[in-house]
């Protein structure tokens, strides 16, 4: 039973840490982009492209963490083994 409790904790803590890092990363990226556009509005197109690429890259971290959390919770490869061991 402890196995499943640890799984839930791992998914929750992982998702929390992943979201925290992603949030800070995206916030910093947007802050710098907005500062750049405010200083030089003519470069907004270039800044938009770079920011978009940066945001996609940063966001993928949260997506990976989410996928891993979902795998831990709903598609855990060790669940059958643990259930089998618990049944013994």
């Amino acid at each position: 039973m402890e196995f499943f409790a640890w799984c839930v904790m791992a998914a929750g803590i992982g998702m929390g840490l992943g979201s925290f890092g992603t949030g800070i990363g995206q916030g910093l990226a947007i802050q710098k982009a907005v500062e750049g556009v405010a200083r030089n509005p003519g470069a907004s197109g270039k800044i938009l492209t770079t920011m978009m690429i940066g945001l996609a890259m940063i966001e993928s971290l949260a997506i990976y963490v989410f996928v891993v959390a979902m795998i831990i919770l709903f598609a855990n490869p060790f669940t059958d083994k643990v259930v089998e061991l618990l049944a013994k």
């Binding site: 997506i63 989410f66 996928v67 979902m70 795998i71 709903f74 598609a75």
Partner: peptide, 10 residues
């Protein structure tokens, strides 16, 4: 995105 991933995995 989250809903799509949940549907795909679960």
């Amino acid at each position: 995105l989250a809903a799509t991933l949940v549907v795909l995995i679960v």
